[in-house]
């Protein structure tokens, strides 16, 4: 076959200006060995103060029997070792909450991914009013979560808009803000609020596809699906992996949405992790137990996160644009 030599075989090079690549020829004598690493000290110190310090404190707290009665002299509150951890795993419903959180986040994410990509592809080519459509797509993402949750809570009221719509179709779906449906309610609202994030990142990925690539594939006779599947999607792998990761973390940590939608105490079916931690900390005032829960959930979430990071190689700095 006489193919045109592919000008850019890989979509990897983050060509668009991101400053000098580290491996580029040594400039002005800045070699790997002589880099002024000491300049990182302020950042490092800040990181110690802002991230590492509190984290160590949190781990220490999780081993104290710290509650409203011992708070005043918290440093001398009883040290109970792993007591809080045992309690959180055995009798606090923590594992169930983790499961609820992770599963709901995953379902929401799996539905938002094709939605976001579809929307990005649909608005990729210029057409009249594209600017408006693109702006409208961003509305759910721009609205504060509190507003989104309040509006949906109103619509999901018994005999509210949603109920009336279902009744109009001859169906009685039951309650949305209490009982088993709550799980699907939060998934739905989460999808509504977060798909534009996927859309944004997918759009950014699409922008990176060079015009020549489109031309080349067209010359090769690739039809839209083949083009999409073998030419465009590979470009999206990086941004979408990133979107998946950030989105999952965001969903799992989303406190405002369930809090505003369902209130405290949460219906049993939607007692997600942030709600449980919140209630333990600020309703029952078991600060030690709550810290233990936070640590346990951090570990539980860190394991798949780590595997995932290795798998998609987001942490090797190659894909650019990571945190």
């Amino acid at each position: 076959m006489r193919t045109e030599p592919a000008t850019r075989p890989r979509p990897a090079a983050p060509a668009a200006g991101r400053g000098p690549a580290p491996e580029a020829a040594p400039r002005r004598g800045l070699t790997r060995r002589n880099r002024p690493l000491w300049m990182l000290i302020p950042g490092g110190v800040l990181m110690l103060i802002v991230i590492v310090g509190p984290m160590i404190l949190g781990i220490y707290m999780s081993m104290l029997d710290l509650d409203q009665y011992t708070l005043r002299r918290w440093v001398s509150s009883p040290f109970i070792g792993l007591g809080n951890y045992i309690e959180s795993v055995v009798s606090s419903g923590l594992l169930r909450s983790v499961w609820l959180s992770v599963s709901y986040s995953l379902i929401a994410m799996l539905i938002t991914l094709p939605l976001g990509v579809g929307a990005a592809v649909a608005t990729q080519n210029a057409f009249r009013g594209r600017g408006i459509v693109r702006s409208v797509f961003l509305i759910p993402y721009v609205l504060p979560t509190f507003v989104v949750a309040t509006v949906w809570r109103t619509m999901f009221q018994p005999e509210g808009v949603v109920d009336r719509t279902f009744n109009g179709l001859g169906m009685d779906p039951g309650l949305w803000l209490n009982g088993p449906n709550t799980y699907w309610t939060i998934i739905f609202v989460q999808i509504w609020a977060s798909w534009p994030f996927i859309y944004l990142l997918a759009l950014a990925g699409l922008q990176a596809v060079d015009h020549e690539v489109h031309e080349a594939s067209a010359l090769d006779g690739a039809l839209w699906w083949k083009k999409l599947r073998y030419v465009v999607f590979p470009y999206l792998k990086g941004p979408l992996s990133l979107a998946f990761l950030i989105g999952m973390l965001h969903h799992i940590n989303n406190f405002t949405l369930p809090f505003v939608l369902f209130g405290i105490p949460a219906p049993h079916d939607i007692e997600v992790l942030p709600m449980l931690t919140y209630v333990t900390s600020f309703q029952s005032f078991r600060f030690g137990l709550s810290a233990a829960m936070a640590v346990v959930s951090l570990i539980l979430i860190a394991i798949p996160l780590f595997i995932y990071l290795r798998a998609v190689k987001l942490d090797d700095g190659e894909s650019g644009g990571t945190k």
Binding site: G179, I264, P265
Partner: peptide
């Protein structure tokens, strides 16, 4: 009392589906 109050409220919250 904060916990007790929450517990009393929780009985109603969890009963809402049956109430309906």
């Amino acid at each position: 009392w904060g916990d007790i109050q929450l517990g009393l409220l929780n009985v109603t919250v969890q009963s809402v589906p049956e109430l309906a």
